[in-house]
Design a protein around this nucleic acid. Structure first.
Lengths: 198, 198, 198, 198
DNA sequence: CATGAATGAGTCTTCATTCAT
DNA sequence: AATGAATGAAGACTCATTCAT
């Protein structure tokens, strides 16, 4: 007569822990985040945590996977008819919106510290893959339409777009005086230069 | 009046530990590096370590400071008569040489995990400052000579150069298939686009 | 809504550790007592200790506080109608009973070694205060009744009573051949002389 | 052609270290005193220390032995013709003078922490013995002359004199408001009461 | 399902002592 | 004799994880 799970409740609890994890990892780094702090932030007992995630590392991976799924969903929602250049612009705007969450930068740094772990590495590789796979076709389309330079493969150009975006995120994380609002147009200009004629 | 301290020996030992630190931090991250591992790598006893660095964190900071000094020395060695654009190119080549040390990427990630610590933060801020201050005057000179676009302040343009360089380093750290050799020319091209006419 | 904390169990465990602390500190002194030895004596794991006391020093302080509370309770239990001289005698008998615990002497020595620490100093100061405040009113009453000399203030006389008591305890701690049984009557006589007519 | 020792210089150096030891032990306790601190205080190198004392503990013992010798010398200097009661008074005055050295109290506490060590225990036993043996004959003389009560053996009475003196010292060490100047006469009075007629 | 007390392996760091110079 | 760099054993404390309730 044991009521095993109310799946709704379970998912909510899980998201609540994931959110606490994002906050804690961002603030204190991976190993700086104790499971105790995690539970305090999530408002649960220490035992409950391990009902949901067998390991602290599993929580980190779950956070990454959530992000990956969101990226996946975002690209899945694109219509084939959309203008490729505008998809790129929209994606950048979307990414900048994410960057606005003050926890993102800290979380990215936190992940860096555990990048060596196979499970984390795999999750990151998948995330990078999804991103690359999501963006690349649109770049290729744009090249076909002559809207973007074609002296590089679409793959390599995508890599460089993401490279600049990552540099932007890194700067954001490091430099207080560097803000999304102030630098958004410079990012757009730099992207244009990067994509511009060969 | 026995002179027991051999400053030469002391400095050598110190560098030996710093080198071990760079290796260990790069491979295992900051908190993944135990002082025991550090001592093993440096070939010293566990107590000796603390003769040279009062804390594991102090070692990390010392490594950063060494890098900062090298940057400082590099810019101090520039002649006022040098061509500003060529100084920039040379600096990028110099930075790429540093990036070629396979430990750099891992070390950068390791630092990320401890960025919150005041001492580390200060060392990083100083390093960023030295770099910015070293590069900016040459960018300004280049602007005066009309060799570089002048729709941005020299400071902001320098920031963006470093942003791209950091993105490059980050990619290097993350993506196995992304190599200095293969991407050097693309970096030069991107820099040229970034600096190019307004 | 499972009630997992059993406060009774918690208190018992705590007392069990306090008792182990008294034993270990008495035998081996403060710094001679390792937390490992403490846990062994208390029959708990090394981590459990730190569930109850954040620091070895906190355990020491807790022991002192327990003693202070006992003193407090003892004086709180006196009836206002009691004969002041007999209260004094009873207190001395009570103190001698405590001194009979063979661990007390060793513990007192152990405390001496850490007296410099602020937290310990504070606990000792409080203990001394409670003792002085507990005893002094009875001395004052006795003076009023002419049962005790009144050429000193009650406070100063109380101090000297405690001084002799401390000397007695110290001797007990130092001199094997000095026993409570053999010297009890001499203590009573000395106290009588100290309190006797001006 | 090696000049092995200038005995004078050696003794001076030794005393210099002993004095540093007294200071350090008093301030920081035994285990709180590092050999490094000892050497700093004495103004010598860390190696030099171990030229003079094979062990930190040996230094402590040496300090105790120095005190014992002084006591010995003091009693050896008494003339057989002196008035026994006055010898006692003079000794108390002498002891109070020693107590005036602010380091004494701290040092006494420091010794308490290592009392368990055989070598220390032996030195303390010897010190107590010398004191007892020095004082007891004079008490016995005074008893013979009817100047002091004789319902106790001279030995036991001596013990109690020292007990009160130790209590006095302990109070001095603990209670800021308790000073030699203010309490000297009360000590004399208490001693008189202790020694007074049976 | 939820809890938090219990665990113990593992960490950084201290410090008395040795020894080459 | 004097020095101080080097040593490594030992200690206090942390924290992810388990499990009885």
């Amino acid at each position: 007569m044991v009521r095993t799970v109310d799946p709704e409740r379970h998912r909510a609890r899980r998201l609540q822990i994931i959110d606490a994890g994002l906050t804690c990892f961002a603030v204190a780094g991976y190993s700086g985040t104790t499971t105790a702090a995690l539970c305090r932030q999530a408002g649960i007992g220490s035992g409950t945590f391990f009902h949901y995630f067998p390991t602290k590392q599993h929580l980190l991976v779950a956070i990454l996977e959530l992000g990956t799924r969101e990226t996946q969903d975002w690209f899945a929602a694109r219509e084939p008819t959309e203008d490729p250049r505008s998809v790129l612009d929209t994606y950048i705007a979307h990414a900048l919106d994410d960057f606005a969450d003050p926890r993102i930068a800290g979380f990215v740094r936190a992940v860096g510290a555990v990048m060596g772990e196979p499970a984390v590495e795999a999750a990151l590789a998948l995330d990078a893959h999804v991103l690359q796979e999501g963006l690349e076709p649109w770049i290729a389309r744009a090249q076909e339409l002559g809207r973007v330079r074609d002296d590089l493969t679409a793959q390599r150009l995508t890599t460089w777009i993401l490279l600049v975006l990552d540099g932007f995120l890194g700067r954001l994380a490091t430099d207080e005086s560097f803000t999304v609002a102030a630098e958004r147009s410079m990012l757009e200009d730099t992207m244009a230069r990067l994509l511009g004629g060969n």
